[in-house]
Amino acid sequence: MKIKFHYIIILAAMLAGSSCSKLDNVKPPSTTLKGQLMYKGTPIGVEYNQVPFRLYQTGYGGNSPITGTFDQDGNYSVLTFNGNYKFTIPGGQGPFQWKELPSGGRDTVAIALNGNQTVNIEVTPYYMIANSAITASGNNIAATFGIQKIITDATAKNIQTVSLFVNKTQFVSPADHAAEVDLDGSAITDMSNISLSVAKPTFPITQNYVYARVGIRISGVEDMIFSPLVKVSY
């Protein structure tokens, strides 16, 4: 059989032509919604990947939310489409109180998304860490800080422990740390002046800095609240 080159050329042209067409007729999400957990303008630190949020799009079929978790400095970020959304945090999550509706459900924050937007999430934490200072002193990492009790009504909760966590990377949490020191909540005498100190951890590859932050574990609450992360060089 004689090979007919013009057929092959036509076929190639057709293939090339078809490959140029836009097959994907759905645009990718392009609107960024981001923000941070706040109490009166002060960011709230939490444990990485432990405090989830839900974002429901109203008027969209189905009941499934977009879910995500907060970063350890309380930031969140979602890439999605324009539309009307409702933001909420599931029950029993986070070291703070979230507004409950009289009818029993969890309140939501309505967000009309039209272009990139920053929405900070205002919550009421049980406690806040104030004036935290973490420094290297001799062979130790030392932290001084004060604790402010925010919720004082009938729903107030006690402090279980306060802890100083030290790690070689900037992920610092109960799950991921190289050194830790705890102080029992009942052993705190002066809430405005607490000191914790732990020996510098050693690493297989020596580095002259560590990351550290202090956290409060509140009795009956799963998530801890943290001070801002500090890089301690020595």
């Binding site: 189905g62 009941n63 499934s64 939310p65 599931p90 029950g91 029993g92 799963e222």
Partner: peptide, 28 residues
């Protein structure tokens, strides 16, 4: 680490979408 939300396994969103009468588990 056993979290409070682990006491009862999650009912997935597909089930809740198909039957909105299903309430979600606590602490999830």
């Amino acid at each position: 680490t056993f979290r409070l939300g682990n006491y009862y396994s999650q009912i997935n969103d597909g089930i809740i979408t198909a039957n909105p009468k299903i309430v979600r588990q606590p602490n999830q």
